[in-house]
Design a protein around this nucleic acid. Structure first.
Lengths: 229, 229
DNA sequence: CGTCCACTTGACGCGGCTCAACAGCGGTGG
DNA sequence: CCACCGCTGTTGAGCCGCGTCAAGTGGACG
């Protein structure tokens, strides 16, 4: 199956690949070539895309939706490493040796994921070296992001960690309104807690505190208004 | 200045570059080419190699010694991200946009560092695409390492974090003896604490506890014997 | 409209941080 | 060579914040 969604959503032949940073440096013609080896799959919310039990050596590129990347540990806890969204890729670790087996990627909403097999992606890298350079760039910024998370977990107070997360989400998932920035939360309370290395109860209390202080306004469980100062 | 140490330590023309994973896929001839554009510098223990004040856009490759990579934060605390040693490289983030300005790299002991300027390294990547692939591989494993650290900081107890660090160092810096594995610590107590997101006092107490439990034996401040069970 | 699960809120205990005093070590200068 | 000083590490006491356990609430979704 070729990338139906891609083709469908851009009937004139231009593709959704323009939105994927990894392929940004390619010419239209080259993109067409890549397009032909892409296979798209749909995943329902909650479905596992990568899981220790079903091994799939592919590069995955998000075409629609959001996913979370998790490291589960032995006693049932989960560390959420990333929330990835349209244009992001994952699965590259498995393609370059060094795959740390127990990584789980799960769809946060109904998602469309384009996949390229290991063999074909390696051929692609040989054929279009620009992709390799772009890949280094993206991995470099992901590394920076992980380093920031390490810093946050290592030295920031819980209070700062939680508020920093809200500010990060306001940039990525926020929309400006008159009263402030309205944020569509990609994660539940428990998931946010699992990202910040704290418990669900603690994050509840912190959010309640910020609301008392007039910094934010909680709207249901899935939206936060970050109030202008 | 060309890479004096490299040339000196291998008078017959073979180079120390064989020990650098990044250049492992190159032929001898290609290594010679790379050798010619490398500039080596010596750093004293405690000297800064990368620092916000002295900007240097280079790729750095460790030829001798050890360095620590730090993220300092506004209120004086330091998060130690990595301890790098012979064959490792750093500085690549600054070469691919996205440089998070406030990273510090400091020599843990007298070190010899080979540098390649940004322009020359980019030319190298064009000319020898194998290097780009190897670079992706190394960055992928460094990413995995950071993800492990995030997991550790996020969900492991302090007790487990400290002991895991000892076990990690036993693999990297340990030497087998009759009584157990003798570890040459690359970091001081305070630095280990800054790596694990805890305080110097806490790590002292944990180590004392492990010694009481017969798991380790403290030898001065710079060695630990990890006792066989 | 009803059910259920995620979220909220409270009480309590423990672990690691803070502050403080002291010991050990290395470096420096007389 | 030793005396001094500063820095790092150790140990103790007390406190505070987050985790845990438990009960109650509300929103999301069928």
């Amino acid at each position: 199956m070729t990338c139906q969604t891609c083709l469908n959503s851009h009937p004139k032949g231009t593709t959704c690949m323009r939105r994927v940073p990894l392929f940004a440096p390619l010419s239209l013609e080259e993109m067409g070539e890549v397009q032909r080896i892409i296979v798209q799959r749909e995943y329902k919310k909650g479905e596992f895309i990568i899981h220790p039990l079903k091994v799939m050596q592919c590069l995955f590129i998000i075409n629609k939706g959001k996913v979370k990347v998790i490291r589960p540990n032995s006693d049932g806890k989960e560390q959420i490493l990333y929330v990835l969204t349209v244009g992001d890729f994952f699965g590259e670790q498995a393609l370059f040796g060094q795959m740390s087996k127990d990584i789980i990627v799960e769809a946060l909403e109904d998602s469309g994921i384009c996949t390229i097999s290991k063999a074909q992606f390696q051929a692609l890298l040989q054929q279009m070296p620009q992709i390799a350079l772009k890949m280094i760039e993206v991995m470099s910024s992901r590394l920076t992001k992980m380093e920031e998370l390490v810093e946050s977990l290592g030295i920031n107070s819980v209070d700062k960690r939680v508020f920093d997360l809200i500010e990060e989400y306001s940039l990525k998932f926020g929309r400006k309104t008159e009263q402030g920035i309205l944020i569509q939360l990609p994660l539940s309370r428990e998931e946010m807690a699992n990202h910040l290395g704290i418990t669900r109860e603690t994050i509840s209390r912190k959010l309640a505190k910020y609301q008392d202080e007039g910094k934010i306004k909680l709207i249901g469980h899935k939206q936060i208004l970050l109030i202008n100062k």
